[in-house]
Each structure stands twice: as structure tokens, then as C-alpha cells.
Design a protein around this nucleic acid. Structure first.
Lengths: 198, 198
DNA sequence: GTCTATAGGCAGATAGAC
DNA sequence: GTCTATCTGCCTATAGAC
């Protein structure tokens, strides 16, 4: 069992925390080592001790972000048995990010994809892939159980959900309007939910 | 009546053409005056004669892109009387952009919103606003005519469509997979289309 | 691990000649 | 309109001391 002790985060972790926020808010091309250094009150030279270059830092960011996200998905499965509740919880993961006025890390990197170091590109796509696989399983199970209703293969439905939620974040964020996101997300999920009735 | 004569584009237009492509592919923070200068075979100093700074260039890009987009919307209305056909044509505008491996200009700028010169921000939001207004009118008319079917106010449905299409471009582009976009767009539109039936 | 110092490059921008 | 020349600033990155 994990202990409850919270130790102060080490330098590597703090670098990742700051860099993650900067990428999600300003993009990978919108921040510099200097931004991190100022906030952490160390020099840019010291940053290079922890991460050889921006590309390596970027790779580490995606790896940590993905790992945490997939842990959150596992937690949803452990906590909620129903497919429709799982879908709602999934959308709430996105909402929580938006509430901090951030974009999904990989959504932001998708926009900047053409300018990313090669080492980062593949792992951005794998993030989406794994999201879609998880959603497809949820959707398939929900359809079998009768709580969800949609036509076509669950993989395609899963892709539409990822697209819809990423897009809702992208558009809602500059308006600073969480309601805009919630509305789009709710309509999206509703279009996969079985209608009660005759 | 407009003449059929195509004159060679002037320098301003060529600058805008190149810059537009660069922003849609690489982002506003992902290209420089030097990139344009090389391609146009003039110096960066000359660029400053046509556009005082990058912010002014950015403003001009949004203005031209928006104007053309709204012209395209007017053309759809002139050509297609049915709401469901108009929706499909609307999605095809996005698909045409994606086919050139570009993101929507304002979708890209939405991702970079926090780093944009102030002069550019407002016009990005106005682009989305006007898209939503147009869609809301189409949706409302379609519901009255019976070709479309959805619950809630047309303004909210319109927002969900903009979000869904922007997101589908964002995610599909790094995969270089137009089918991924088409699938998401089709599901989205289908969720607003009246079902034929008993 | 963190620092100072510095390299080398690229960014956006301007002055002034033609 | 376009050029050369130049500026200032920021960027990533490295060498080497502590």
C-alpha cells in the first residue's frame, strides 16, 4: 500500500511540471528554457543537466502525461461499471484540464506536429491511439449492455469522440468558457447514449 | 460581371499566400519572415515594407481568410437550398483544407491563442462566432423544414459542429488520414440529420 | 547539481542607399 | 519597392569551475 507521505518534488519533477504547463498554455514553440529557468530560479545551463535538449524534455513530457492519463482511465474503469458513466467521466478528464486554462498536451502538440522533433511525433499519435482503444472497448461494452446506442464500428465512434473533445477544448479555451466545452461534450455523448422510451 | 482575366498576383498577395500556408502548417510561432523571404526571393527588409510587423501580417491573414470563408458560405447558400446538403458542403470546406495537409487557420491560431499579439486575438474569436451564426441559421431552417432533427437551441448545436470539425482536422492531420476526418464529420452530421423511418 | 561565461545562430526590426 | 548593412535581443547549447 502506498504511504501518505508527500515528499517535496525533486528538480526533474518540477521542471516537468513547469514545462508541461507552458506547453499546454503556449505550445512547444511558445516557450523556452529561459521561461522554466526563471520560474525554477536556476540557470538554463542547469536545465541541460536534467534534460539534454528540448526534444528530450518534450519526449519526457509526453511520456509522463500519457502514463498519468491512462492511469486515470484505469481508475475510471475501476470506479464506474456503466459505460455511459465511463463516457461522462472521460469527458470530465478533459474538462478538468480546460478548467486550468490548458489544452490537452497532445492536442497542442498535434497542432504543432509539423515542427516537432521527430522523437516526439510518434508518441503523440500513440496517445490518441490508446485513447481510442480504451473508448472503443467502453463503447462496445455499452452497446452490448444496452446503455449506449450507435451505428458502425466502435473504433470509428471512438475516433469521433476524441476529435470532438479535443476540438471542444481547442475552441472553448480562447473564449475562457467552460460552458462552451460542456455543451459540446454533452451533445457528443448524448449522440451515443441509448434513448429511454418506447 | 467579373472578367475572366487572371493577372499575376502582386507581392502583397504572394506574401499572404506563403504566410497563410506557413501558419496553417507550422503555426504562427513556427515560421519567420526569413521563411517567406527565401520562398519569395526578396529580403526580410522588403517584407517590412508591405507589412510593418508580424502582428500586422497576422491580422491581414485572418481578415483575408475569414472573408474568403464567409464568401464560400454565401456560395453554399446560393447553390444548395436544403439544410442537410448545406451541412455536408460546410464539412467539405474543412475537408478541402485538410487535403492540403493544413489546419484551419483560426483553429491553429486558437491553439496558440495565449501567445498571439493582442491585435489578432479578437478576430480569431469573430471567425468562430460568424461560423456559428451561419450554422445556427442553417440548423434552425433545417429543423423547421424537417430535414434536420436535434434538441436544444440551434446555437449550441452550431457550436458543437464547429468544435467537432476543428477537432477532427486537428487529430486527423498528423495521421495524414483524410478518412479519419471524413468518418468523424459524417458521424457528427448524422447526429443532426432526421432519420427516415416509420 | 548548479554555477559563470560564452558561443553561434536566428528572430523581428530599422536606417538609409538605390 | 527592393536592397545592404546593422542592431538588439533571444534562443539552444556547451565548456569548465565550484
Amino acid at each position: 500500500m502506498a504511504t501518505m507521505t508527500r515528499v517535496a518534488p525533486d528538480t526533474q519533477t518540477r521542471i516537468l511540471d513547469i514545462a508541461e504547463r507552458l506547453v499546454q498554455k503556449r505550445g512547444f514553440n511558445g516557450f523556452s528554457y529561459a521561461d522554466i529557468a526563471v520560474e525554477l530560479k536556476i540557470t538554463t545551463a542547469s536545465l541541460h543537466y536534467h534534460f539534454a535538449g528540448k526534444a528530450e524534455l518534450g519526449r519526457a513530457l509526453i511520456a509522463r502525461y500519457s502514463a498519468r492519463f491512462f492511469e486515470a482511465l484505469a481508475a475510471i474503469e475501476a470506479r464506474l461499471p456503466d459505460a455511459d458513466a465511463r463516457l461522462e467521466a472521460y469527458a470530465n478528464l478533459y474538462a478538468a484540464v480546460l478548467r486550468e486554462k490548458r489544452l490537452c498536451l497532445c492536442g497542442m502538440l498535434a497542432a504543432e506536429y509539423d515542427t516537432l522533433p521527430k522523437a516526439m511525433r510518434e508518441s503523440v499519435l500513440r496517445f490518441f491511439d490508446e485513447n481510442e482503444r480504451w473508448l472503443a472497448r467502453v463503447l462496445e461494452a455499452g452497446r452490448k449492455a444496452g446503455s449506449l446506442d450507435f451505428g458502425g464500428p466502435p473504433e470509428e465512434a471512438a475516433r469521433a469522440i476524441v476529435c470532438g473533445l479535443e476540438g471542444a477544448m481547442l475552441v472553448a479555451r480562447p473564449y475562457r468558457d467552460i460552458v462552451r466545452f460542456q455543451s459540446a461534450a454533452q451533445q457528443l455523448i448524448a449522440s451515443f447514449t441509448a434513448k429511454a422510451g418506447p
